[in-house]
């Protein structure tokens, strides 16, 4: 069973004002040597968050935090919604990026666009991605700059977010929604369709016998 998310939830948002945030930034390579799926949270945005260079052996509690990085501000320390600019999650296919974001405590990311592989990795780990057009993101940015903090309510079932009395709709594929809400084990679910795979394979093998050894 994978992690499931609630139908309706709310949270405080932090704004990371950068476009093209790549997965090397989200979780630098030295942490990819771990063979686990957990424990990546303290190293989320590692190079921006700390002033020194860390690795898997570092004691993160002893490292010096970068006071200029937004996630280190007291106001934003317990935020669970990340708002950012376009093309978030571009670059490498490392799922560790998603594991780091969820392990840190983010439930939702709101941006004008996300990279394709990152999108797939996210829903499989219960991380909700919400695409909202550029102009709306600009508005939210202005609001956050003025008010410092904002609360956002997310209605996954009806596909709306609510902020400051505004209702913004968002798109979500049926199958992604189902997985997010039900936290289904995807391998098990596909295996319920095993007949289809077997039928396909039987015919396909006749077409390309050299690919079966």
């Amino acid at each position: 069973m994978n992690k499931s998310i609630s139908n309706i939830f709310s949270g405080e948002a932090v704004f990371l004002d950068k476009a093209n945030v790549d997965t090397d930034q989200i979780i630098p390579k030295q942490f990819l040597k771990s063979i686990k799926r957990t424990g990546f949270g303290p190293n989320l945005f590692d190079a921006w968050r700390y002033l020194d260079k860390g690795d898997l052996n570092s004691d993160n509690t002893k490292r010096k935090l970068n006071p200029d990085f937004i996630l280190n501000h007291d106001l934003y320390k317990s935020c669970n919604i990340l708002i950012t600019r376009e093309n978030f999650g571009c670059g490498s296919s490392r799922e560790h990026a998603v594991w780091a974001l969820t392990d840190y405590g983010f439930t939702t990311i709101i941006a004008p666009s996300f990279a394709d592989i990152f999108k797939n990795n996210s829903y499989k780990n219960g991380l909700l991605l919400i695409e909202v057009d550029k102009e709306k993101i600009d508005e939210i940015f202005t609001q956050i700059t003025e008010k410092k903090t904002i609360n956002i309510e997310v209605d996954v079932h009806n596909q709306f977010i609510y902020l400051e009395e505004k209702q913004i709709p968002f798109e979500l594929d049926d199958f992604k929604k189902k997985f997010l809400l039900d936290g289904i084990d995807e391998v098990g679910f596909t295996l319920q369709h095993q007949n289809k795979i077997e039928d396909f394979e039987k015919n396909y093998k006749k077409t390309v016998p050299w690919l079966f050894k």
Binding site: E95, I117, V187
Partner: peptide, 12 residues
């Protein structure tokens, strides 16, 4: 593909 997909392809 990501790691969950690696597992999915291995299995299915």
């Amino acid at each position: 593909i990501g790691t969950s997909e690696v597992e999915h392809v291995l299995a299915t």
